[in-house]
Amino acid sequence: MDHHYNCNGCNVTIVKLPKRLALKSNNGKFLKSVDDSYHSLDFASDDPNATKSGLEIQALPSGEIRVKSVYYKQFWKRANDGDQTVYAVAGEKETGNKDTLFWPVKISEKTIALRCVANGKYCSRNRMYYDYLHAAADTMVDEARFEVKELVSERKIYDVEYRVDEARIYDSEPLTAGSATLKNEGEKEALLSDKVVYEETATYAVTRSESVTAGLEFTFEGSLTKVVSFKLEMSREVSEKMEWEVSKSEKTTQEATVSALVPARSSVKISYAGSKGKYSVPFSYTQRDIDSTTGKPTITRAR
């Protein structure tokens, strides 16, 4: 989720990013570390999984981030020159240097901008001798909008444990699911019954703490939940491909029996009432990732 933070009277939003990622500019190329003595950064790679394209995000408690080149094993740093060029030259201990700090701004689930803390400008692709990275854009122009590619080739979510005591039901409202007409053609009052057939729609999605989902598909293994009479229940076990924040819907045909005392030679229309609404329930899970650059697995427990 996004968190709001107040810095010297200005309201900003803390955006959480994946730990390892690559950035794609509007020229269709990924940022890469250039093999030169300056440790330049150039939007010229076609392969996000190449070592030179890899970036690691170091998030600070205040919401700022430092960005590390996997190839050079050093962090981004703005050069205080006319071009405001960003190089991968900063060390591990330069956390207090504003030239190495950036504010991520979420544009969409896959797109971000990065504002340099030192000069308040946005990082962007600047075409000169090559498509290098600099921090000189006043606004989030197209060249300052970067698509996030998380460096994971395979992800599995399993060992899901729901925290039912923290579940929340909201936006509930009554709903008429269907109706039946009970017709008594006899001479006496009678108790009549009929079936109401209706369609039940359930929509579900899974979310995580990262603000940018990067469109990564994963396998979810665990139980789904449902609400019955305003109480949370386990629904069914699934093992299926999903994406963070992307909803899936299921429709099932249900039937219910309605009954009523109907006077002689008359009819009664009975409506079968239900409700519709939303609910959320937090859960803990184990996550197994396969790094798309190294092929190595990483297993973490998330909450």
Rank of each mutant, 00 (worst) to 15 (best):
Q58N: 13
F220W: 10
F283Q: 00
D36C: 10
S153A: 13
V262W: 01
Y130T: 13
G91C: 10
K52Q: 14
N184F: 04
K226L: 08
N184Y: 08
E94G: 04
N11V: 11
D194M: 03
L216V: 14
E243H: 11
D165E: 15
K149A: 07
P48Y: 02
A50L: 10
A135I: 06
A202T: 12
A137W: 00
A190V: 04
K32A: 10
V12H: 02
L192I: 05
V160K: 05
E92F: 09
D291N: 15
R66P: 01
E187C: 06
A256L: 04
D83A: 14
K188Q: 15
S69R: 03
E161W: 00
G28E: 09
L261A: 12
D35Y: 11
P61H: 05
T298I: 08
L41K: 04
T293H: 06
R265N: 11
L55I: 07
R66G: 01
S284F: 00
R78F: 08
T203F: 05
K52I: 07
F283P: 00
K276A: 07
T294V: 12
V86I: 13
C7M: 14
K19P: 02
E92Q: 13
R78V: 02
S153E: 05
N49D: 15
N126Q: 11
S62N: 15
S62G: 10
S267C: 11
T252R: 15
